[in-house]
């Protein structure tokens, strides 16, 4: 990975594509985590040369779709589970055959509903975050529940992503439906919408805006918020009192992978307790899927957060998704200015 020679310029010009004995990994989590995984894997399997590139889940899914039939990617590691499930549904990934014993239930569930084509590696709860400085200056009491967000005191202070473009926001939509029932959920989302200043395209944008004080309150994944807070921003994550949904980060082997053996070794490695315990080293505070992995003290404790029994099979399917988004457009999105 890190072999850089002064004559790299020469080597770059040569038009070499993928070599069969390399393992081509696309990583959809944070760069530092990706880098750590690669160096740890190469240490354990010195015979395999890992070629890793970081791309977001949407970009990866688009690429995997376009390359179907002659894929250049062997394994897709990390990133929220929905696109992994879509890939499984469309036959773009294949079962790894790696045992899921010793994993937590939500990780096994991921494997079960996808015909063993994708496995959970970490989970992150959906949460509200607020900028303590902004709310203090404006004299607004911090939110504790989803329903607080409907209150007029948050007028123009809430930022959340658009579920049509962001998986994070879709998780929020599905969570509301599962928490409150479909009709009630849309009423709530519409009245929260009265306070929303903009529906961003990207799912991680609202929390970043809240960290800098560009908005007062954001909705997103808790481990991202914890990370921003540890960087020094006055951002406080809140686990909503009604309960909340969560995402499961996943790993899949691409259908037609040139190096299946290497990819399988990668999946085994990614599910092992050793490597999962090391993620806090690079500032990642998601909850690991291996039951025996150590959890960092900063990680949101899923035991104390009221987690709903998120139904990935139903809400991950294209039919439900299409229907809910259409309704969201009509009842929530269309009212945004």
């Amino acid at each position: 990975m890190k072999k850089i020679s002064a004559i790299s310029a020469l080597a770059l010009v040569s038009a070499t594509g993928a070599f069969a004995d390399d393992l081509n990994v696309v990583c959809s989590t944070e760069q530092a985590w990706c880098d750590m995984m690669v160096s740890a894997f190469e240490e354990k399997h010195p015979d395999i040369d890992v070629q890793m590139v970081r791309k977001s889940t949407g970009e990866t899914l688009a690429q995997v779709r376009a390359e179907a039939g002659n894929p250049k990617i062997d394994v897709w590691w990390g990133g929220t589970g929905d696109p992994h499930l879509v890939a499984a549904e469309e036959g773009l990934s294949q079962p790894s055959g790696v045992s899921t014993d010793g994993l937590l239930d939500w990780a096994k569930n991921m494997s079960d509903i996808s015909d063993k084509k994708t496995v959970g590696i970490y989970a992150g709860a959906l949460a509200i975050a607020y900028n303590a400085d902004v709310l203090e200056e404006k004299n607004i009491a911090p939110p504790a529940c989803w329903s607080d967000l409907e209150d007029e005191r948050f007028k123009g202070e809430i930022q959340v992503a658009n579920p049509n473009s962001s998986g994070t926001a879709y998780t929020e939509l599905a969570t509301f439906v599962q928490l409150f029932g479909e009709d009630e959920a849309f009423v709530k989302l519409a009245s929260i919408g009265e306070n929303v200043n903009s529906y961003t395209k990207s799912g991680s944008a609202p929390s970043k805006a809240a960290a800098r004080g560009e908005t007062g309150v954001s909705i997103g994944f808790m481990h991202d918020m914890v990370k921003l807070a540890t960087q020094g921003f006055p951002l406080i994550p809140v686990a909503p009192c009604e309960g909340t949904g969560y995402e499961v980060g996943a790993v899949s082997i691409i259908n037609g992978a040139r190096n299946f053996d290497g990819a399988k070794k990668w999946v085994e490695f990614a599910l092992s307790a050793d490597i999962q315990s090391r993620s806090p080293e690079v500032g990642v505070f998601a909850v690991p899927s291996n039951a025996s992995a150590k959890v960092a003290p900063q990680s949101p404790d899923l035991e104390t957060i009221k987690l709903i029994d998120y139904d990935f099979a139903t809400y991950g399917s294209s039919a439900t998704r299409g229907r809910l988004l259409e309704r969201w457009d009509a009842e929530v999105g269309s009212k945004a200015n």
């Binding site: 770059l12 070499t16 993928a18 081509n24 990994v25 944070e30 760069q31 890992v50 070629q51 890793m52 590139v53 970081r54 791309k55 977001s56 970009e59 688009a62 690429q63 376009a66 250049k72 990207s202 991680s204 970043k208 960290a211 991202d224 990370k227 921003l228 960087q231």
Partner: peptide
């Protein structure tokens, strides 16, 4: 470029965008 970069041939902008996405 986002779609065309690969592990061997990664580009500066895709590196920068990745970092921005992570808030770094």
């Amino acid at each position: 470029v986002i779609f065309l970069v690969s592990a061997r041939h990664n580009m500066a902008t895709s590196f920068i965008v990745g970092r921005v996405e992570n808030g770094e």
